[in-house]
């Protein structure tokens, strides 16, 4: 009786492995099977691999493995047959791009469950923040309500900090935008959209300050005619750890973010999963 074909759980698959060469786990094997193809097939099923299943573990497969590893370490939900399912992030899996035992076991379980990765976005109801007034354009997604603010789950604490800063300064905030969809609007762009922004991963918010009946717009800050309360709010927000656009080389007085390095892995992962969530109209969990 011939030995059963090997699959991706049998090797710590890595970059350079190739089914045709029978190179698996970094060494040439005499076994049979298509472990790299099997791995790519499951990576595709869980939504992290978008190119051809070809049995060649190259850079795209490595990136896909890293995406899966990052997702299982970070995101507190996944989709099972399209429905959100809460989960506890893994603390044992490392983001190393290798289909090691822990990764392969987790991936195999996801495949068996028919599970798919989703982003790290969260719906925060603006009404739950006493100082907020939501003026943001609604994002097209069946789970997003009219008064929902969409941010990365990692930015939720900053929404609370902004609300507290506004309460302390006795001002209201008109929220103009939080998460932003990448690229041009449906009808086309009149100017080239930016390629990098904290909004694209859900780690920024734009707002105008309302001091009583007075709207403090960018020109008020530009000309130094902002009110004392508006200044106090900005100082409190900065003290809470937020970056203010008014301090940028090209000022952006409406902007607050917590700066995730746009060239780092955290940014790239959040960009991939959060933009994909919106593109695929995946359900977004409400903030806890």
């Amino acid at each position: 009786m011939p030995a059963p074909d090997k699959t991706f759980t049998d090797f710590a698959l890595r970059r350079g492995d190739n089914d045709k060469l029978k190179r698996w786990g970094g060494t040439i094997s005499t076994e049979t099977g298509t472990p790299v193809q099997d791995l790519q097939t499951v990576l595709k099923a869980v939504g992290v691999y978008d190119v051809a299943v070809d049995g060649d573990f190259g850079g795209q497969t490595e990136t896909a493995v890293k995406r899966f590893q990052w997702n299982v370490r970070t995101v507190k939900s996944r989709l099972v047959h399209g429905a959100l399912e809460a989960r506890a992030p893994s603390t044992t899996i490392k983001v190393n791009g290798i289909g090691d035992a822990a990764t392969a076991t987790e991936l195999s379980a996801w495949g068996a469950a028919g599970a798919e990765t989703t982003g790290n976005l969260s719906r925060a109801n603006a009404a739950s923040f006493a100082q907020f007034q939501n003026e943001a354009k609604k994002i097209d997604n069946p789970t997003i309500g009219n008064d929902d603010l969409i941010v990365d789950a990692g930015f939720l604490a900053h929404l609370a900090a902004l609300n507290a800063a506004a309460a302390g300064a006795h001002v209201k905030l008109l929220i103009n935008q939080a998460f932003r969809i990448a690229g041009a609007p449906v009808g086309g762009a009149v100017v080239t959209p930016a390629t990098k922004s904290q909004h694209l991963i859900g780690h920024a918010i734009d707002c105008n300050i309302l001091d009583g009946a007075k709207l403090i717009n960018s020109d008020a800050f530009k000309h130094g005619t902002q009110t004392a309360a508006a200044k106090a709010f900005v100082n409190a927000a900065k003290a809470a750890g937020l970056r203010w656009g008014g301090d940028f080389g090209t000022p952006d007085f409406v902007h607050f973010d917590d700066f995730v390095n746009p060239d780092g892995e955290e940014y790239l992962m959040r960009y991939f999963f959060n933009q994909r969530t919106i593109f695929k109209k995946q359900p977004i969990p409400a903030a806890a």
């Binding site: 935008q177 609007p185 959209p193 990098k196 909004h199 694209l200 902007h255 746009p262």
Partner: peptide, 13 residues
């Protein structure tokens, strides 16, 4: 890559 440009382009579009 600038937030000021990103916001300007987004609101204008």
């Amino acid at each position: 890559r600038s937030e000021a440009y990103a916001d300007w382009a987004s609101y204008l579009n």
